[in-house]
Design a protein around this nucleic acid. Structure first.
Ligand SMILES: Nc1nc2c(ncn2[C@H]2C[C@H](O)[C@@H](COP(=O)(O)OP(=O)(O)OP(=O)(O)O)O2)c(=O)[nH]1
Ligand SMILES: [Mg+2]
Ligand SMILES: [Mg+2]
Ligand SMILES: [Zn+2]
Length: 569
DNA sequence: GCCGTTTTCGGCCCGACTGTTTTCAGTCG
């Protein structure tokens, strides 16, 4: 799939144009096109073939031609040409906090600064303060910015972000001047990775709140501090933004601070169309505020039904809201069982019984204990004899715990040729079989595609687990032909997993939405290796929600007797 | 560069904080 390539090329163009001082709206056009193509739940090549590129919002005559060129040649002449105008290192300078396109351009033109190393040298030498509009303070800030730039962390996974946010909320809500407090931003939208923690507070005493916020024990630097908005950096180099507003603006501010930016812009454009003004304080008709206290009334004032935070990405939610066609999103309470977990039989840290007990606490009706297969020796894969013993133990547990159905399964390795690690004779005896790739990640897309299709075609494979292999921070998702793969899944009635492990969240939101559109059923699992991991189901559910999935799209929302796995029983 | 139930040209979201400026531009959210 070339979606990511097209998106990357447009993003690169936008960055170069920024430094060149191009028209801001032209730059936005490239950024918008890049994002819209990246989040497309479809292969961009299909749009080329069907001559439908212009149906994609933000794609007009010019970008249509550029996309065609990229899809057919794998690159874009226009970008190659632009790259010759601007030294590569200059783009990196934009990542130094406090330095934007204007400053980068000035530094390049006046001091021939071409990368961060040169920038640091010039700042140390005191050369920057002499430029127009710059001073000593600016120079200091640039040096501090470079230090931060060097320590820039990767985006946080959802679990870490949730914990950091909870820590700040717990400390801040103790202040008696805090009335309401909510995490916002990408965390509230439950995006799979989060850059910073955004927290909204309502209070009548903003000054006091900000004094407290910027002096909390975890705070290392104060990036900015005002009565309405402050930013700090923690000792772990995580940025936390806080906004404080009055009660009457809380809904408007929550809407603003939840975003996404693209969603906000659409909202504001819609307001303009209605002759209104929308900002983080409310919706205004002339000077009069007509909404602001709750998000619901904000949406209503624009003629929209309430849009769940997970959908606020400008991925069609406005059109759906206006038509009354928003999905009834799946909820954590809808989940009736967890079909992928490990025990001490392989590389899990808790016994099967401990996993069962925790699952019952969560109210599950069924679980599948799916330890690794024989070939995965480092992960303690089970041989034939061990499988027999494990089966017996599961039978015993099923007798002992009548309130939950325990399925005997395995996460069977799909080898580099697409063959399964157990013969059919063994798979036949299992209640549930999960196929998963653990090696050969670097194979070309066509090979991976064939492997997964072959696994789907095995009549005992019920689910493909962590289908794209991504591990946040260490391994990118491998590419495959999703159209082909999902077609095979549909034909063979094989479900695809949303793996709830925070580093995985695989399928992701976009791929899950693609799966739904292809008619493929989804299973949300935790892949727990410890009993406490069973709690991570909420992260997988968040991915499903961001993918617009409803209860009926998810197999493990069904009670056991209705569980529609192929060949079950 | 895109887009159009008032437009095919002239708009394109809106505001807080900072440093440098003597009234605002740049950056960021
Ligand atoms: N209207 C408007 N709102 C913005 C803009 N930039 C950011 N916001 C709002 C929406 C964002 O969700 C919210 C928080 O900004 P962040 O930069 O932290 O982005 P967000 O949390 O969405 O993603 P992140 O994971 O932090 O990169 O502020 C903007 O340019 N205009
Ligand atoms: Mg954020
Ligand atoms: Mg932020
Ligand atoms: Zn597993």
């Amino acid at each position: 799939m070339k979606n990511k390539l097209v998106a990357k090329i447009f993003r690169d163009i936008a960055e170069i144009l920024e430094i060149k001082g191009e028209n801001h709206f032209r730059i936005r056009a490239y950024e918008r096109a890049s994002q819209n193509i990246e989040s497309l739940p479809d292969d961009i090549e299909a749009f080329v073939k069907e001559d439908k590129l212009k149906d994609i919002s933000g794609i007009g005559k010019d970008l249509e031609e550029k996309i065609k060129e990229i899809v057919s040649t794998g690159k874009l002449e226009y970008l190659e040409k632009l790259k010759k105008d601007i030294p590569e290192g200059l783009i990196e300078i934009l990542n130094v906090p406090g330095i934007g396109p204007k400053t980068a351009k000035l530094l390049y033109e006046k001091l021939d600064i071409q990368d961060v190393v040169m920038l640091e040298r010039m700042a140390h030498a005191g050369k920057i303060r002499d430029l127009e509009g710059m001073g000593e303070k600016t120079e200091e800030n640039i040096l501090a910015g470079i230090e931060l730039f060097k320590k820039t962390r990767e985006r946080l996974d959802l679990k870490i972000a949730t914990e950091v946010a909870e820590g700040f909320v717990a400390q801040l809500e103790k202040l008696k001047d805090v009335k309401r407090i909510n995490p916002a931003g990408s965390l509230r939208r439950m995006k799979d990775t989060v850059r910073d923690i955004d927290i909204l507070i309502s209070s009548n005493n903003p000054q006091k709140i900000m004094d407290a916020f910027t002096t909390l024990a975890d705070v290392k630097d104060v990036i900015a501090k005002g009565p309405a908005k402050s930013s700090i950096r923690t000792k772990d180099n995580i940025q936390v933004d806080a906004r404080v507003v009055g009660e009457s603006s809380y809904g408007a501010s929550l809407m603003y601070f939840t975003g996404s930016k693209e969603h906000n812009i659409k909202l504001r454009q819609l307001a303009i169309k209605h002759g209104l003004k929308l900002n983080e304080y409310g919706i205004f008709k002339a000077e009069r505020r007509i909404a602001g206290k709750t998000e619901e009334e904000m949406y209503k004032a624009l003629g929209l039904s309430y849009i769940e935070p997970e959908l606020r990405e400008d991925r069609g939610e406005f059109e759906a809201s206006l038509k009354g066609a928003l999905p009834d999103l799946v909820k954590i309470e809808d989940i009736k069982g967890d079909l992928h977990m490990h025990s001490t039989w392989s590389d899990g840290g808790n016994s099967m019984e401990e996993m069962v007990i925790k699952s019952m606490e969560l109210g599950y009706e069924y679980i599948a204990i799916t330890d690794h297969s024989q070939g995965l020796k480092i992960a303690g894969g089970l041989n034939t004899h061990e499988l027999e013993l494990k089966r017996k133990e599961i039978d015993e547990l099923n007798k002992k715990y009548r309130d939950i159905k325990i399925l005997f399964g395995s996460e069977v390795d799909i080898d580099s040729d697409g063959n399964l690690d157990y013969p059919d004779s063994l798979l036949r005896g299992m209640d549930i079989v999960i196929g998963a790739i653990h090696t050969g990640f670097k194979q070309p897309s066509s090979f991976i595609t064939k492997r997964i299709i072959k696994a789907c075609q095995n009549k005992y494979v019920n689910i493909i687990a962590h289908p794209t292999g991504r591990l946040w921070g260490s391994r990118d998702a491998y590419d495959m032909d999703f159209k082909e793969v999902f077609k095979a899944a549909l034909d063979t009635n094989t479900a695809f997993e949303i793996n709830s492990f925070p580093e995985r969240l695989d399928l992701n939101d976009i791929n899950s939405r693609m799966a739904k559109e292809a008619g493929v059923k989804i299973v949300i699992n935790t892949d727990s290796h410890l009993a406490e991991h069973l709690n991570m189901m909420k992260f997988g559910v968040a991915v499903a929600r961001r993918a617009w999935l409803e209860k009926n799209d998810i197999l493990n929302t069904a009670i056991f007797s209705k569980l529609k796995l192929k060949n079950l029983g």
